[in-house]
Design a protein around this nucleic acid. Sequence first.
DNA 1: GCCCTAAGATGAACCGGTTAAGTTATGCGG
DNA 2: CCGCATAACTTAACCGGTTCATCTTAGGGC
Lengths: 337, 337
Amino acid sequence: MTTRERPTLEAVARHAGVSRATVSRVVNGSTTVAASIREAVNRAVDELGYVPNQAARSLVTRQTDSIALILPETANRVFSDDLFFPAIIRGVGSELEAANKQLVLMMAGSAAGYARVERYAVAGHVDGVMFASIHGADPLPGLLARRGIPVICSGRPMIADPPVPYVDVDHAGGVAAALRHLIASGRRRIATIAGPQDMVAGLERLTGYHDTLRAAALPELVATGDFTRDSGITAMRELLDRDPDLDAVFAASDLMAHGALQALREAGRRVPADVAVIGFDDFEISRYSDPPLTTVRQPIGEAGRTMARELLRLIAGDPSVPPAIILPTDLVIRASA
Amino acid sequence: MTTRERPTLEAVARHAGVSRATVSRVVNGSTTVAASIREAVNRAVDELGYVPNQAARSLVTRQTDSIALILPETANRVFSDDLFFPAIIRGVGSELEAANKQLVLMMAGSAAGYARVERYAVAGHVDGVMFASIHGADPLPGLLARRGIPVICSGRPMIADPPVPYVDVDHAGGVAAALRHLIASGRRRIATIAGPQDMVAGLERLTGYHDTLRAAALPELVATGDFTRDSGITAMRELLDRDPDLDAVFAASDLMAHGALQALREAGRRVPADVAVIGFDDFEISRYSDPPLTTVRQPIGEAGRTMARELLRLIAGDPSVPPAIILPTDLVIRASA
DNA sequence: GCCCTAAGATGAACCGGTTAAGTTATGCGG
DNA sequence: CCGCATAACTTAACCGGTTCATCTTAGGGC
């Protein structure tokens, strides 16, 4: 193994016949260096294959140029069925790449992992922290913010004690659009498969359902899932059981909508002839379902990008970062409703 | 904002009335500290909310307790359609969590991102590097290895100049099992949709197809895709065009198999009555396709876990890390063949 | 009561950079 | 030709930990 000793600033300086400070200034692109010397130093850097030691550098500059994205789920769940996190990661990644920052992904599922994340951030391993989707009343964002670490959330945090800026989508607007579409096409017994009620996304979509149906003076019928396909199947069966004559279902996630499609097929219902189905997300796979799914598109990638952009401003000390940014949703009409 | 100044070792030492060195030993769990002092120090640590500065620490210890996983694709592709990376990440994540190491995800799509990854690793930001799937003759693994950085690959690297240890699955065995199943059930005109030929996985699966069909003295029919669903659709149409009487297709990935199912349906062929279809991967979604997909299961998560485990041994300086580990594949028979 | 030993605490060097303050060469006006 | 401003480089003081050699002190044996 060619474990060639990594050259230090000192070595480069000696090689180029200048001082450490000068090399440092060349490496960091200072303008007050004579061209001839700059060139000599660069040559020495190349010849020795010098790369600055990150630990030494960030010890004094107090910054690391990397940023954490926290996925508050166990590693086993994050990437299994769910397509939400991949989309967030994609958005965040593209934005950070442009800013030349390094993305550090962390799963904070277990309690131990949770503590580790906190220590990791407080230890100064990263310059800022993003949270992708928050479960329940998660204290971590506030905790880190109180420690002086720049923090931003995707989805409104449930506790607002130290207010943490966040990026979210217009849940209520999306739900209203979906339900109005169903009502306009003559549906009158519209059920919903709600999301988990310990997440703001789950709560707000259910609230939107209540509000819109109440305004339209239509009966309400609710079953609750956890955003997964399987929970959608179970919930749909339960709904059919409670009201065999329902003529539409609004599911609070695409995966639950797919589960509903499957349960409806098993129960012999035709979609959309007997029952119309609308989801929420607009995942790629919803274009290929049978029938293709009508759904509320939420700009997840855009949310990730926005989150990254705002965090970078926060880190730069920009005082004008808004406490909340709400992105629009829109209804994508396909065959299922 | 409560940007409370982070306490240093020095502060804790003063608070507890001992020296810096002693606090350091307590924090790192040295045994040669009197119980009373240890307790006093711990109290001081709690009261001040002390967390060691990672930069300072790794400057001297030369390790960071974090490990990079390189996804050599652009951020935009990695998480879109593909379910391979999520599975790898899941496996790696669970293993590293158990070892209390931090996972750092890096996308190395663009050339710039590529250089950044190299600098990042060489700068000592991480203790070791894993590569998830390699495209073509990627020089980066060898480059890092030559720099003395512990490296391990998922999938056999195409260049073996500095040999880099790797974890792979038994492509040939899986393909052979699939084809033997088709032959045993009476199929005689068996086509294949090959994967990209700049990836070892693509190459080896095609080689397996050649070898098995030649041994069985059956005609060969090949179209090439890039592992995506769309490329599967295109390739299937092309195959039907070239041999309308084919009675089976082996696709080198599940997504291409799904594309093939769609193209076959459009062409009015019944699966498996007219044409049998087998994929390779066994993604979750293949259980829900119409018909459910017969496929070669490869233990992606297990590969991730193994990769992480071996890398940790490499980092620990264990000289007995094998140059290659090949995991078994097996045929999962569902309805499509 | 004295010396030796060992447990346990300390002082100080060091890791590899950054940067403010200090020093030296260069150029310009008078 | 001198003095001074300025550009350009060097010196040295940090950043916040770890660790080894050194020192202190309490205890045990005779």
